[in-house]
Simulated assay, not measured.
Amino acid sequence: MKQRSIGFFAYAVITAVILSSCALILPELDIMSWSPGNDEPVNIDDLIISVEFSREPDHVLAEEAFSLTNQDGNTVNGRFSWEGSSLRLTPYSSLEANIEYSIKVETSVEDAYGGSLNEAFYKSFRTGSEGVRPVVEAVYPADRAVISSRNASVTVTFDRQMDFESVLKGFSISPDISGVSLLNDSGRVFSFTPAELWSLQQEYNIKISTDAASSVGYSIGSEYETSFTVSSDLTPPSVISVSTVDDATILADSIINTGWEKNSAIAVYFSEEVDQDSAESSVTLEPAASFDVDFDDSVTPARMIISFDDNLEWHTVYRLSISTALTDAADNAMEDSVVRRFFIDGASSMPPSVAKADFAPAGGSTVCF
């Protein structure tokens, strides 16, 4: 019995020594990587402050051992979070621009086996200027512009020197068209020249994705989009005349036109073919009255007919407006709105009235008035 106890004790001692030896041969706790790293200056918008340990340490001890201070020695407070063996600090307020900051991890941090840092970890970084992301300053053609040149180059001007390969990757045109891309000597102006002619009456959409980055690696941050249309027609439409449909009486500008009938339809003649949907939405009448807008296809270049669903009110001045929302087939907008005023006092629209009445009292003579 005594011999068995001695044997068991010896086994326990040997096991403890083996386990202790295993613990002893574990490497010291180390920091494998840190962010923001050695790149300077650091973009405040993209800033991540973190350290990655070689093994997951005790979270409380690690957070107590970690500190972030500015160049004046003031501690930056924030919220800690963990992802595996990586500790991340999110400051409660944004870091300042053009300031040096220091990350330090004391040797008091330990893992589950008691392993700690052989020496304190210390790194510093400097933040860059505010607005370190590149910005698109201008694009030609301008957004929603209509151009006539079918071989015009598209140019994108940035506020700083750009990386050509990243801009090329981020630049796209839809519908797709082949061409040659260049970056000028300053590195700020990117150009695209089509290898074939732009299609007429075609809208092209330009997109610059967040792949586009400056020469030091900062992206534009948010996608940029613009569009333009290629057209040989750059002349805006205009109203030639406004008149009645029945007798072609012209409605003059700047006066109140009289003699207008309550059920007269209005004809509007244009200088060219217009977009019918935009024309319909451009017409308003005050006081409000229900009306229909139609186009007479037998008349060129274009005649629009405005007819009223109900008779207009007698002795009322109406104001007809055609706004600059009206466009032609090439999307050129009318430059000036058109206004006509007319007074419903036509002879055929006059309400009936009593012209004569005879009154014969009982037993007396007839009285006329």
Rank of each mutant, 00 (worst) to 15 (best):
G259D: 02
D72S: 15
D328C: 03
L87R: 01
S323T: 13
D46C: 01
Q3T: 14
T324D: 00
T316N: 02
S215N: 13
L87N: 00
T284M: 02
S86L: 08
S116Q: 12
S238W: 00
S54P: 08
T75S: 13
F270H: 01
A112I: 15
T15A: 15
V274R: 00
M334F: 00
L61A: 07
G37P: 09
V293L: 05
H59Q: 14
E28L: 07
S116E: 07
T258E: 11
L24M: 13
A23G: 14
I344P: 08
S153G: 09
Q202C: 08
S191C: 01
E165C: 06
E335P: 03
I48T: 14
Y92A: 07
D277I: 14
A279D: 05
V245I: 10
N263A: 09
V189F: 01
K262H: 10
S54L: 03
N205R: 15
T226L: 04
S81V: 08
N263M: 02
S323M: 04
E313I: 12
N70C: 07
W82S: 03
K207Q: 11
K262G: 07
D185F: 09
V338W: 04
A212Y: 01
T316A: 01
A302G: 03
G131Q: 10
V132W: 09
D246A: 12
R55E: 01
I255T: 13
A12N: 14
P41Q: 03
S232G: 08
S214Y: 03
L183C: 04
S129G: 13
M304H: 01
V317K: 12
T316D: 00
A329K: 10
A248K: 09
S199L: 10
M1L: 11
N184H: 06
I49V: 13
L182W: 02
Q161I: 07
S282P: 10
R303Y: 00
G363I: 10
E223Q: 13
L47S: 06
Y92M: 11
Y122G: 13
V268C: 00
A138G: 10
